[in-house]
Simulated assay, not measured.
Amino acid sequence: MPDRTLDFGKFGARGIKGSDAVARKLDELADGIVTPVTVKRGLMARLHYLTRTDHSRRAARDAGLTVSDRTLKAWLDERRRPSNANLERIEAAYRQVRRQNVARHLLRRLNAAGGTRVEIHPLNQSQVPRPLQRMVEYRAMNVRRWDRIVDAWSAGDHQALDDSWEDVIVDLGSQWGQYEYVTNIGFAA
């Protein structure tokens, strides 16, 4: 069984970790507010999302948005504008709270009907010298249990997500190590 890749890209291969591609796709599926936080409409939508209920306020505080209620009210009433650092905190808190809120729904959809078909697009070897290229092809597989992957993603735990994704790709057989880094992973829920 192959070990994890230690020196990815040494000969010119390009790609991203498979777990990062999965996280990117889950973020895309969970995406809510499209307008950037730097625009008034995007800022107001995020602030309303983060302050609508006591539960969302607590979740926003846990996610790192630790400003006073007075400051929050001034932002909502548009009497003051958040600094760039606070805009980043608002965006990060929104992403984390959004992940937690949609995780159960996504999990139910991904596990429905025996799992979800996943397409794995191999890494890009166009810059690798011919004698050093691997024979890597497009693969598809059915992922039946998404629980650990979605839990790690919603918690923002990159190491747990990486470990969970590795447990899934082991099902590809003895060549699973060739799919640790990919150009893209696609699935729908």
Score class of each variant (00 low, 15 high):
residue 106 L to D: 00
residue 86 N to E: 09
residue 14 R to P: 00
residue 89 R to A: 14
residue 39 V to L: 14
residue 136 V to F: 10
residue 158 H to F: 14
residue 24 R to I: 14
residue 66 T to Q: 15
residue 161 L to T: 00
residue 57 R to M: 15
residue 160 A to H: 03
residue 82 P to Q: 01
residue 109 R to W: 13
residue 151 D to H: 02
residue 5 T to W: 15
residue 179 Y to T: 00
residue 128 V to M: 08
residue 78 E to Y: 04
residue 71 T to F: 06
residue 136 V to T: 12
residue 60 A to P: 01
residue 113 A to N: 13
residue 51 T to V: 10
residue 150 V to H: 09
residue 142 N to V: 15
residue 54 D to I: 12
residue 24 R to N: 12
residue 112 A to S: 08
residue 161 L to M: 10
residue 60 A to N: 07
residue 132 L to Y: 10
residue 62 D to F: 05
residue 112 A to L: 03
residue 57 R to G: 12
residue 100 Q to S: 08
residue 20 D to Y: 09
residue 1 M to C: 06
residue 45 A to H: 02
residue 94 Y to N: 03
residue 73 K to W: 07
residue 145 R to E: 09
residue 175 Q to R: 06
residue 124 N to A: 08
residue 129 P to W: 09
residue 159 Q to C: 10
residue 47 L to N: 02
residue 156 G to I: 03
residue 145 R to Y: 13
residue 162 D to W: 07
residue 63 A to W: 06
residue 59 A to C: 06
residue 28 E to R: 07
residue 48 H to D: 12
residue 26 L to P: 01
residue 158 H to Y: 05
residue 163 D to Y: 00
residue 63 A to Y: 04
residue 102 V to Y: 14
residue 2 P to L: 10
residue 130 R to W: 11
residue 79 R to Y: 07
residue 164 S to V: 09
residue 8 F to N: 04
residue 6 L to M: 13
residue 65 L to M: 06
residue 157 D to N: 15
residue 43 L to E: 08
residue 142 N to D: 07
residue 188 A to L: 15
residue 52 R to Q: 14
residue 138 Y to T: 14
residue 90 I to S: 07
residue 148 R to A: 13
residue 3 D to T: 01
residue 42 G to K: 10
residue 20 D to F: 10
residue 54 D to C: 06
residue 112 A to I: 09
residue 26 L to D: 00
residue 119 E to R: 12
residue 86 N to W: 15
residue 104 R to V: 03
residue 78 E to G: 04
residue 149 I to C: 09
residue 174 S to A: 10
residue 170 V to W: 07
residue 147 D to S: 08
residue 116 T to P: 01
residue 97 V to M: 04
residue 112 A to N: 01
residue 173 G to M: 00
residue 10 K to F: 08
residue 183 T to W: 10
residue 24 R to W: 10
residue 33 I to D: 09
residue 172 L to D: 12
residue 65 L to D: 05
residue 19 S to G: 03
residue 127 Q to M: 12
residue 181 Y to W: 13
residue 172 L to W: 04
residue 128 V to N: 02
residue 180 E to Q: 14
residue 65 L to R: 04
residue 69 D to Y: 11
residue 188 A to P: 00
residue 53 T to W: 09
residue 161 L to G: 01
residue 185 I to P: 02
residue 171 D to I: 02
residue 183 T to Q: 04
residue 129 P to D: 11
residue 19 S to E: 05
residue 112 A to E: 10
residue 62 D to K: 13
residue 82 P to Y: 05
residue 150 V to P: 03
residue 105 H to L: 14
residue 144 R to M: 14
residue 170 V to N: 00
residue 39 V to H: 15
residue 170 V to E: 09
residue 40 K to P: 11
residue 12 G to E: 06
residue 171 D to M: 13
residue 9 G to F: 02
residue 139 R to F: 05
residue 106 L to K: 03
residue 22 V to M: 03
residue 113 A to P: 02
residue 122 P to A: 04
residue 110 L to I: 06
